[in-house]
Nucleic acid binder design. Structure first.
Lengths: 155, 155
DNA sequence: ATAATAATAGTCAATATTAGTCAAAGATAT
DNA sequence: ATATCTTTGACTAATATTGACTATTATTAT
């Protein structure tokens, strides 16, 4: 019940805004000032509590007029199927296995034909064209996982 | 929500004119005065937000009666859009420029929203997660070009 | 015509204004 | 005790703003 560290408090503050609004847009230093913490703590709070797994999208911009924007998105029903796939893929996947993953997503109706093709092209060995097989496989894993994470919610 | 910085505001102002007109022709100092910025900021706005990757052509003239003219071009009107884009991309492209390119393709109906999102995710810096900026940019270029070539082949 | 001047826009580098990363130190939970 | 989570701050990166200087074109004076 009682874990009232400042990160939790900041989390609740942001979520209370998100309860009424589609998204919240902050200036990092303002929130840091408000709660008397260093600015980078805001990054910590976001990184640990506003993940895509929890249904939050975060975008930001630096420079004058910079901001951090947190948006609550609707997670889709097959979100946990995606979780499983993501775990299976891990941090490396061969082109062959990637094909199988994309194929099964297509068969399940998660992707249409054109989308499946796009992903296969993007993760093709000749597209990536790195000399290092390990790097190639880990890039492929990150690209596919990135896309799977994107498929969790409706935009 | 708010475009806090003045460059975004100027961008929106110009684009609002372009929403109704074929092109917009300005006197640099007038716009600078209007928004209370130095004239060279107009160049900054144009250079960062009205590039060919964004689908805009800019021409200008100095001297008395000088002007800057911005025109929105439709890449689909051109028979060899993809060739042009591929050439512009070359073997390296930043995330920002990639965003502009994908956005243009979306606006021109080459990609639908979901496809555009997939490509942006696949080429996002955090997805690629290589800590070598040159490698990152060249991977991004290969992925986008690979996809563009695939689109050409498909249609 | 030509030269001087005025009226534009362009470039570039310095500075300002944000946010991001990372690792060390501190606190808390198991 | 140890592992995990939180807090902090030094350093980095991205973007925006500004202004001095340059380049180009038009107009005016000779």
């Amino acid at each position: 019940m009682q874990s009232q560290n400042i990160s939790d408090i900041i989390e609740k503050y942001l979520k209370s805004i998100l309860a009424d609004a589609e998204h919240v847009e902050i200036r990092r230093s303002e929130i840091a000032d408000l709660f008397n913490v260093v600015p980078s703590q805001i990054n910590y709070v976001i990184k640990t509590r506003f993940t895509i797994q929890n249904g939050y999208l975060v975008e930001s911009k630096r420079g004058g007029g910079g901001y951090i924007r947190i948006e609550k998105v609707n997670l889709l029903d097959d979100a946990d199927v995606l979780d499983t796939l993501i775990q299976v893929i891990g941090d490396s996947i061969t082109q062959r296995d990637a094909y199988a993953v994309v194929q099964s997503l297509y068969e399940d109706g998660v992707l249409n034909r054109r989308e499946a093709q796009l992903i296969l092209v993007a993760t093709d060995r000749n597209t990536l064209a790195v000399n290092d097989r390990d790097l190639e496989n880990s890039l492929r894993a990150r690209i596919i996982i990135g896309i799977l994470n994107h498929l969790r919610y409706e935009s």
